[in-house]
Write a protein that binds this DNA or RNA. Sequence first.
RNA 1: GGGCGGUUAGCUCAGCUGGCCAGAGCACCUCCCUUACAAGGAGGGGGUCAGAGGUUCGACUCCUCUACCGCCCACCA
Length: 973
Amino acid sequence: MLKEYNHIEVENKWAQIYKNTSLFKADKYKKPSFSIVMPPPNVTGSLHIGHALNISLQDVFVRYKRMKGYNVLWLPGFDHAGIATQWVVVRELQKEGISRFDLGREKFIERVWQWVPKSRDSIKNQLIRLGASCDWSRQRFTLDEGFSRAVREAFIKMYKEGLIFKAPYIVNWDPKEKTAISDLEVEYYEEKGKIWYIRYPLEDESGYVVVATTRPETMLGDTAVAVNLNDERYKHLIGKKVKLPLAPEKRLDIEGKEISNLIPIIADEYVDPAFGSGVVKITPAHDPNDFEVGKRHNLPIVIVMDESASMNKNASEFEGLYRYDARKKIIEKLKELNLLEKEEDYIHNVGHSQRSKEVVEPYLSTQWFVDTKKLAEKAIKVVEDGNIRFIPEGWTKTYLNWMYNIREWCISRQIWWGHRIPVWYCKDCNHLNTFNDESYETVEEKILFNLYADGKINQIFCIDEVLEILNNKNFTHDDKTNLEFYEDVVFGKKTEYLKDKNKLIELLENSKAFEKLYEERYKIVLKCERCRSENLHQEEDVLDTWFSSALWPFGTLGWPSRDEELNTFYPTSLLITGFDIIFFWVARMIMMGLKFTEDIPFRDVYIHALVRDEKGEKMSKTKGNVIDPLEMAEKYGADALRFTLIALAAQGRDIRLSEKRIEGYKHFSNKIWNASKFVLSNTDIDVKDIEDLELSVEDKWIITKLNKTIESSLKELENYRYNEYANILYDFFWHDYCDWYIEFSKERVYKGTEKEKITALSVLNYVLRESLKLLHPIMPFITEEIYSYLKNKDSQYITVAKYPQVKISFIFEEEFLFIENLKEAISSIRNVRSDFSIEPTRKLNIRVKPKNIQIKLKLLKLQNSIKSLAKIENLEIDETIEKKDSEIVVVSDVGEVYINLEGIINIEKEIERQKKILSEIEKSIKIAESKLSNENFINKAPPNVVEKEKLLYQELQEKKEKILNILKILKNN
RNA sequence: GGGCGGUUAGCUCAGCUGGCCAGAGCACCUCCCUUACAAGGAGGGGGUCAGAGGUUCGACUCCUCUACCGCCCACCA
């Protein structure tokens, strides 16, 4: 029996049950399948409202497809989120007054591993609390044993094919984090700055040229000044030299060569004569354009800063100064020397590191890059050909535009938390070696190599160490040991030799890949591929986090070792994510998916909007306007929160969320609960299947309406119109089922015969059950709870119940129309009450003159319900009656309704009322008339539209007649 | 500089391929604690669909321009 609705109790109960069942576990082999990989949340903190939206959208589809009978996989996981997570731990350390460099790489990474589970587990609990029906048995982490191995595979393969290369290049350098970042990780905002015009004296001291710059501190790295070839002002100077002010006579370029402070004036088309002075200083080491110019003209490259953006030796007297201090000093000095022509205020876009907010320094450094242009070709084609579909469609263009203009992707990061690049430099011959487990024969050897490559053991290791690690609980799956994880998830093969010490010793002694040192210490033998030297050193850099995330859809399904899950679930069916990571993630998954699986990673990409606050502002902790999803779930229920997000998730527009709205949908939860309470309160009745019942007209109406609702809502959902789906269901449940059907049913439930009672309750039950199923994808908890009390159902849990289907045999158009008309008639009566200020307790005497005999029969059957719905004392239904003086008339589609207003009637008022109705009808008639008298309309509009219009016109005319008649009678009195 | 999106009731928004009088929720007004529900029920007011043109028998819907707002991309020193 249902009591007051307590969402906390209900939701916690079902979250727990869901967690402990295998209802959401996907079958490795069964088809047809429906698969989604969850965009892995970063292990940096906890979920925010944007996640809640993302999760809700996914869960709706996942639950829907599961109920439809698909073998559904929703694969959850977490992203190690390189810089972001490192940043969190760095900040923690800061509180203790230490830097990551104080701690050292190994110790620091240990600290991060200690942090990760805190965030991960909190997020996992939140996901469960929000009702995410994912398959936790398949949970993954981007740094788990299998995924790290997949990352190495991908890297090495691409490196060997030349798709990844290492080169000196201008990168966006974050001097605070001391790492390179990719173009995408730079945010530009306008800042007030200055532009300085600096005189560079000509070599022969015959004058000077003026260069304009916003970053004078880089001038010490200038190796040329450039003008446009066609610029008459400077044409004659091309080929001459200027003396670079403030620079020492000799600077060292990146090759260690001495560079003079006399630098050439060159001509390059890059220079816009109209801008600034028309002369540009060229600093190849500190500006991407200048770098390109430098390449074209073979200019030397002089770096003037170190990795923390302080000036280096090349800056002579400014050495050691931070870039902005150097800027100040340089300007002062230039003023002193009378070399500063002028300075102007200048507003320009300045790049900042997305993570640290530090101003990014374009900085020449040797980094690893992906040659994305080669990957882009196919990634463009699959979208152009429609094999991958963006929803809403508009994002296709955004994606393609970016792809057409794609640039090389810097994938190396000078941080510690992440996948260390699997490249080993030979100290003897400088050869770059890549090693993976391919060269090892047995799974056991492979595992040992991977332990090393993951940084879990050193190249020289002890046996006990290895055994301990392998027998430890796995980080991602605490029901498995690390060894079991390798066996089950990574390789899909059982090992023989890693279970006990003696076997392991046996393996190591017999394997060529290992060398015994002493006392159970072994070394993994790695030799330079070129010179066979063992004097190797692994690359210090780690990979961009997005490099690994790009492998997510197949890396989590067994790639590269196993293929059973790939066969069943890949390509995945749908990806749901935010527009902010289309380039970061979606685009790169498509490129990598095509590269490594020769197939698309997903078919549909649903891009959702940003959740903003009620004023339309971005939510942020600093603004204090965040709406915490968990807090909302506690306050109003996860169901209400989910329903809110879904109902607001119209395509292509940001969501403005207010707590008020969530509160409003909590009322809907409550409504569902109370309606169910009514339906389920009659426990003594055994409900029947509706096929076995003699249905009344209102039963047929609600069943028809249900079918129509199933049809229309389904269409919306299939087209990812989540908001429409939610609204249709809301409307049906509240306004059809509760407002009308339940009210109609009360007559039979409370006062009907046994048979009538059974019929009514059976239909009530049936419609409730089907409604709950329709609502379940959005509101899993309350629907599951109520479903558990239902008697007549096709499964124990609603989450695996059969999704409602349209049944043609359950569509009764005639009865449907009748009730729709009756509803209107009843509303009209209520209307009259209000117009004449009749108190609600006062019952009316009403007579109805039905349109025809069929309607009369139907009305007679429903007369008790009608009486209670319209608060009627005496109801007479008779086609022969005529209006009495004490009555007023309402013209409806079921017939004329005479309402006895004895003692209340006010002829003047009634005439006014009828006149008002008449004028409205006449207005409509005019519109219809103008259309129908229009030749063009009759000829050109589609016939069904014309037909409709004609019918409407007729009906309006009939009504008009009747009202004119009424008015005549009224006036005669 | 390019591209995208928005402008509909007091507020937040729906309105898909043009076709009955433009809808919902909240807020507001009137009445009602009627045996599922006052977290509720019944009724009601409120819109020249940003502006101007155009296409069309017909435009909130399609096209063009304008205004304002927002986002994304772009190397102008």
